[in-house]
Simulated scan of single mutants.
Amino acid sequence: MSESGTVQQEFDALAERVRPEIVGPEAAVAHAGVTTGRPWTTAEGRERLARILTEPAQPLGLRELAAFGLGCAGDRRAFETLVLLLNHRDPARCASAASALARLGDPRTMRAAAALATNPLRTAYALHPVRLLTGLREPESVPALIATLERLLAPTDPHWRIALACVEGLGELGDDRAVPVLTAARDHPRLSEAAGSALAQLGVPV
C-alpha cells in the first residue's frame, strides 16, 4: 500500500474511533467537514484543520483528528497538539500521535520524545515515545533509550514492557553505546531473551 493509502486508512480508523466523542450539531458538522475527502492534501483543507486546533471548546477527538491530518501533511502547526497527545493516558491517542509525529518532520520531535521517554513521573505512558525514538533513528535516540532502560532494570519494576521496548529499540538502532546496558538487561528475567537478541544485532557474542 502506498504512503498516501496508509495515511488514509489510519485517518479513517481514527475518525471512527473518535466519532462517539463528537457531541452536538456544531461538532458533528466540523467532524463531517474534516472527514470529507482528504483535507490534509489541499491548502484550504489544512487551514480548516488548523482552525480546529485553535477554536475553543472543540472535542479532544476532533482536535486529535485535525492534528493527525496536519502532522501527516508535514504541517508543523500540529506539533504542540501531537506532543500533548503522545503523552496521553489513552494508548490509542499516543499511537496516533506517534504515527503523525514520525511523518511530520519537525526537528523538535526528537527532543520532545526524549523528554517524555526519560521523565520518571510519566513512565507508565512512555511506550509510544520510546517507539517513536526508535523510529526516528537519530543518534540522539540512543542516549534517551539507554537512560530510560537503566532506571527500569530492577526486577521488581512494574514497567518492564517499557524496558522491553527500549531493549528492542536499542537492538534495532545498532549503536555500540548500548552494549553495557543491554548486557545488564540480560540478568532481568523478563528482558533476558530480548537483550540477548539485541546484543547479537550489535555483533556482540552471547
Rank of each mutant, 00 (worst) to 15 (best):
Q58M: 14
R51S: 15
L62H: 06
A78W: 01
E64F: 11
A50P: 12
D75I: 05
D90H: 03
S96I: 02
E64C: 14
Q58C: 07
A92C: 00
C72P: 03
G71V: 05
R48H: 10
A73N: 05
T81S: 03
C94I: 03
I52M: 12
P56S: 11
E55A: 14
H88Q: 09
R76V: 11
V83R: 00
R76M: 04
A78R: 03
E80G: 15
S96T: 11
H88C: 08
Q58V: 15
A50I: 12
R48S: 12
P59A: 08
L53D: 08
C94P: 01
L65G: 02
E55V: 14
L60T: 06
Q58L: 06
A67Q: 04
R51N: 15
C94Y: 00
R77I: 08
A67L: 09
R48T: 14
P91G: 06
A57Q: 15
R89K: 11
A67I: 05
S96L: 08
A50S: 14
D75F: 06
F68G: 01
R63F: 01
E80L: 14
N87R: 09
G74H: 05
G69A: 08
G74Y: 01
F68A: 01
I52D: 05
E80V: 15
N87Y: 01
A78P: 01
L53R: 06
R51K: 15
L60I: 00
E55Y: 10
F79G: 08
A66D: 00
D90K: 09
L53N: 09
L65Y: 03
P59T: 12
R77H: 09
A73Q: 04
A73F: 03
R63Q: 13
R48E: 10
D75Q: 03
H88W: 02
R76H: 13
L53S: 07
E80P: 11
D75L: 08
V83T: 05
L60P: 00
R89C: 03
R48L: 14
A67M: 10
A66R: 01
N87A: 13
A57V: 12
P56V: 10
R77M: 07
R48K: 14
G71I: 02
A73I: 06
P91M: 04
L86F: 06
T81M: 04
R89W: 05
R63M: 06
A67R: 02
N87E: 11
D90E: 12
R48V: 12
S96Y: 12
L62Q: 07
A92W: 00
L65D: 01
A73M: 06
R63E: 08
F79C: 10
A78H: 01
D90N: 12
R51E: 15
R76T: 12
A78C: 07
L84G: 14
P59Y: 09
R77K: 07
T81N: 00
A67E: 02
